Computed example of a mutant assay.
Amino acid sequence: MSSGTQAPERVGAPTAVDVVRKNFSDTAVSSLRTFGRAVGLAQEALTGGIADIVRGKFQWREALLQAWRLVTVTTVPAILMAIPFGVIVSVQVGNLIHTLGADSLLGATGGLGVIKQGAPMATGFLLGGAGAAAIAADLGARTIREEIDALNTMGISPVHRLVIPRMAAMLLIAPLLNVLVIFVGVLAGYLVAIGGQGVTPGSYWATFGSFTTTADVWVSLLKALVFGFLVVVIACQRGLEAKGGPRGVADAVNAAVVLSVVSIVVVNLVATQITAMFLPTRLA
């Protein structure tokens, strides 16, 4: 005799397509939320920093201390990175130019390569590596020790107390580090050109001055500032959102470095296309 009730239908297991779609949608939503929080942090830090300066409450001592810490972790790597970069550009481009019989143009090509691309990219990668790791580790350790919660409990804004001085330090150090990379890279390329490729010093500097304009230097400095701003916002956000103990700090540092480098590459691509359209290379 059949029962009056029917067995409930079994719901089928999710397919691979459903799992991929759900993971993709969750990742996209989480990425948009993270981006929104980063934009909010950047806006709060910028407006708060200007307000602190106007009201005379800006923490100059803390900003200078953070700037010195950035100098100690980036200066030597910047020199070590700039030397081989200048040498590689001089050697590789010099061989091609020598084949074409235009040895006198080596100064122009080497200088433009270092100033327009090499220096800001090297600066960004150094700040995104050493600088972002230092900031994210510091703020992440403070977060898991509940120092950030303690500041909020006492009515002290972590953005004003911790983020703004680090942002000011990064914006101060980024162009200075960019100038250092330019100087070392161009000098290394010059020494290789006159020592190993038979280029006369006069022709090197003549072509360098003819093709390299002040606009190229300003664009390089502006790119370094933008890269530094991206790095400090990402590193501060990752550090303030660290969770899960020491493992969470390590994850925050890793995420800060990876996101900083990826952001720098994407922004540099866009900036290069824009400057190529509005500031093409021409004689000074």
Rank of each mutant, 00 (worst) to 15 (best):
V54S: 12
L180E: 04
G36F: 07
G209Q: 03
E146L: 06
R166V: 00
N23C: 11
A16N: 09
L279T: 06
V54M: 11
Q6V: 15
D52M: 04
G140A: 07
G128K: 10
L187H: 07
A169I: 04
R161H: 00
S260D: 04
G36R: 06
G107P: 03
L46F: 13
G189C: 07
A102N: 13
G40S: 07
G40W: 07
T123I: 12
A82S: 08
V265M: 11
T153I: 11
E62A: 13
P175M: 13
A13H: 09
M170I: 04
K22M: 10
R161T: 00
G12V: 13
I135G: 01
I182D: 03
L139G: 01
K243W: 02
I83T: 11
A45R: 01
D138Y: 00
V179Y: 04
I115T: 11
G49W: 01
T275M: 10
T214L: 09
A255I: 04
N178R: 04
V87F: 09
I83F: 09
M121W: 11
V261P: 01
V219Y: 02
A188F: 03
R238N: 05
R142T: 03
V217M: 12
Q6T: 15
S203M: 03
Q92S: 07
L279W: 11
A78Y: 00
T207L: 06
G198E: 14
T72S: 14
D18R: 15
V262Y: 11
G48I: 01
A134K: 01
L126E: 06
A256P: 00
V192L: 08
Q117E: 14
V76M: 10
Y190H: 08
A169N: 02
D251V: 08
V265P: 10
V73H: 12
G110E: 12
L139M: 01
G198T: 11
